[in-house]
Simulated scan of single mutants.
Amino acid sequence: MCDYVVDVKPSARRTNGAVGAAVCRTGSRRRFDSRADAEAWASELSERGDGRVWIRRADPDDRSAADAYLVGRYPRPELDGAYDKRRRRLRAPSVEQVGLGAYDAR
């Protein structure tokens, strides 16, 4: 009898391609006999895919039928130099560093 319900969250799908494939095959809700079975499934998906996913207990105030969620943490994308540009702009020399001579009209 399957009595442990796990909903797949979008974060897990974005993190791990194997999760997305599993959702396409069987849907975004899975039923397991126990939490241990659900954690074994998450571990298997983590090994097959490119990112780590895990089982997280559902909030007690959550009104869904899920006992837990399959979640993942999507890494922050690299900024490809945008951060460096902003940092340079923010660290532009102040008037005290440059001196007033740079601002004289010629």
Results as ranks from 00 to 15, higher is better:
M1P: 07
M1V: 02
M1N: 05
M1C: 03
C2L: 03
C2D: 09
D3E: 12
V5I: 14
D7F: 10
D7V: 12
D7N: 13
K9V: 10
K9P: 00
P10A: 12
P10S: 15
S11N: 14
S11L: 11
S11R: 09
A12S: 14
A12I: 12
R13S: 06
R13E: 14
R13D: 05
T15D: 03
T15Y: 01
G17V: 03
G17N: 11
G17E: 13
G17T: 12
G17K: 14
A18M: 10
A18L: 07
V19A: 07
G20P: 01
G20A: 10
A21R: 07
V23C: 12
V23K: 09
C24H: 09
R25G: 07
T26K: 13
S28Q: 09
R29Q: 09
R30W: 09
R31S: 09
F32V: 11
F32R: 06
F32P: 07
F32M: 05
D33R: 03
D33K: 07
S34G: 12
A36M: 06
A36K: 12
A36I: 08
D37S: 13
D37P: 03
D37A: 15
E39C: 13
E39G: 07
E39M: 11
A40I: 04
W41C: 01
W41H: 03
A42P: 08
A42Y: 05
S43I: 03
S43G: 11
S43D: 14
E44I: 03
L45I: 10
L45D: 11
E47H: 06
E47F: 00
R48N: 09
R48K: 15
G49R: 05
G49K: 03
G49W: 04
G49D: 06
G49M: 07
D50Q: 13
D50E: 15
D50C: 04
D50N: 14
G51S: 14
R52C: 04
R52I: 07
R52E: 11
R52W: 04
V53R: 06
V53N: 07
V53C: 10
W54Q: 00
I55S: 13
I55L: 13
R56M: 12
R57L: 15
D59V: 06
P60H: 07
P60Q: 06
D61Q: 15
D61L: 15
S64A: 13
A66E: 04
A66C: 01
D67Y: 10
A68M: 11
Y69L: 11
Y69M: 08
L70R: 06
V71K: 14
V71D: 05
V71I: 14
G72N: 06
R73L: 02
Y74L: 15
P75T: 11
P75Y: 01
P77A: 09
P77F: 07
L79S: 15
L79C: 08
L79D: 11
D80V: 02
D80I: 04
G81N: 05
A82Y: 08
Y83A: 09
Y83C: 02
R86T: 02
R88F: 00
R88W: 00
R88E: 00
R88K: 00
R89I: 01
L90C: 05
R91T: 00
R91N: 00
A92W: 00
P93F: 00
V95Q: 06
V95S: 06
G99A: 08
G101T: 06
Y103V: 14
Y103G: 10
D104E: 14
A105C: 10
A105T: 14
A105L: 15
R106K: 09
